[in-house]
Design a protein around this nucleic acid. Structure first.
Lengths: 146, 146
DNA sequence: ACACTTGTAATATAACGCATTACAAGTTTC
DNA sequence: GAAACTTGTAATGCGTTATATTACAAGTGT
């Protein structure tokens, strides 16, 4: 299984907001650049707003960033748009047989280790800032017309 | 999104094979301990076999390990049962707009970083050996009746 | 007032995970 | 060799989820 495209949609959106900060960036505009349905985009933006990453007002056109780009990490976005219901990264088979010695103790042996893997991944996501990505995109665009 | 329960089912199965290695472990037996449908179990076992982790013969009862427990990592199992079609951990939105400077360069800025996160996670999975987990389960079972 | 926006609800569709039935093909045991 | 088991797999159903889409309420700005 894969982590939802909502994650990359969210990153793409934030880059757009920054790159076009001199104009009013709308969900329709983001939908055009990502090639994703406007309602889906608004759903993602809604989650980013709830996480305190962007600002928006009903009716008022124009999405803005709520914090500096170097204060937004991939982890923030991941948590905002993809971590549903506080479920972990790994889906354990529900209902191991408690009559079986192994089934009875499998969680004891696995839970910590799986949580550790998840934490490792999340820490790696924390290391990546949106400012890094935005800089890369801007520089790449600069060199496009040479 | 979550990593499929096939992963924990596979781990559970291997522990069962090891813990009951003096008897013939069947897919039905594993199904009973995991509380997962026997056909699903056989599907997982089939993938483990293809990855060279277990041995089985059609018709012949009894699944056995194909390598030592310290030569099987979580990564081996993950790759065997969950990584479908070589897709990455992250699902990118399919069709960014190439007319847009950002849409045109988003992959350039993200692909390496997302691959890095995936690699970090996979390396963490590589650090965990089945022998560790099996030892924990066995020790825990030992202390159950004290 | 009008044309725009954000914000949501409701529904459709496609993909996927797991359960289940069915059965072919192979093995062990008597 | 027949019976009773096994592995291996195909086919089908069902529930869940991701995304697309339609529709519309509510708010903003000209």
């Amino acid at each position: 299984m894969q982590i939802t495209s909502r994650f990359t949609i969210a990153i793409h959106s934030i880059i757009l907001i920054e790159y076009n900060k001199d104009m009013k960036v709308t969900s329709k505009f983001i939908a055009g650049s990502t090639n994703v349905n406007p309602v889906i985009v608004r759903g993602v933006l809604s989650q980013l707003k709830e996480a305190g990453i962007i600002n928006s007002r009903q009716g008022a056109s124009g999405i803005t960033l709520a914090r500096g780009l170097n204060e937004i990490t991939f982890y923030d976005i991941y948590k905002a748009v993809d971590s549903v219901k506080g479920e972990g990264l790994f889906h354990f088979h529900e209902d191991p047989n408690m009559q079986c010695p192994v089934g009875r103790n499998i969680h004891f042996a696995l839970d910590n280790r799986l949580a550790g893997v998840q934490t490792t991944m999340e820490n790696e996501l924390r290391r990546i800032k949106l400012s890094d990505v935005v800089n890369d995109v801007k520089n790449k665009i600069e060199t496009e017309n040479l």
